[in-house]
């Protein structure tokens, strides 16, 4: 998929664990793992809003478009 999720990079920069991230965003650890591994098919605006709030970043920092 041309949309790449850079959540692992942003989490590393913030020194935040996945479980802490999932807890603060309010999603399950399984869903956080799906997002981190790039298996997610879609992200709700409400979830994206919470992620940006928790990580103090822009959507573009997490989601990057890469041509095949």
């Amino acid at each position: 998929m041309p949309i790449v999720v850079n959540l692992d990079v942003v989490l590393a920069q913030r020194k935040m664990t996945l479980s802490e991230f999932s807890e603060r965003v309010g999603i399950t650890l399984a869903n956080a793992s799906i997002l981190k591994t790039g298996k997610a098919r879609a992200v709700r605006f409400s979830t994206l809003e919470k992620i940006c709030d928790v990580l103090d970043c822009q959507p573009g920092d997490i989601l990057v478009f890469e041509k095949d």
Partner: peptide, 8 residues
């Protein structure tokens, strides 16, 4: 169903 499951 799969798409719904993989929607975060």
């Amino acid at each position: 169903n799969e798409e719904s499951k993989l929607t975060v």
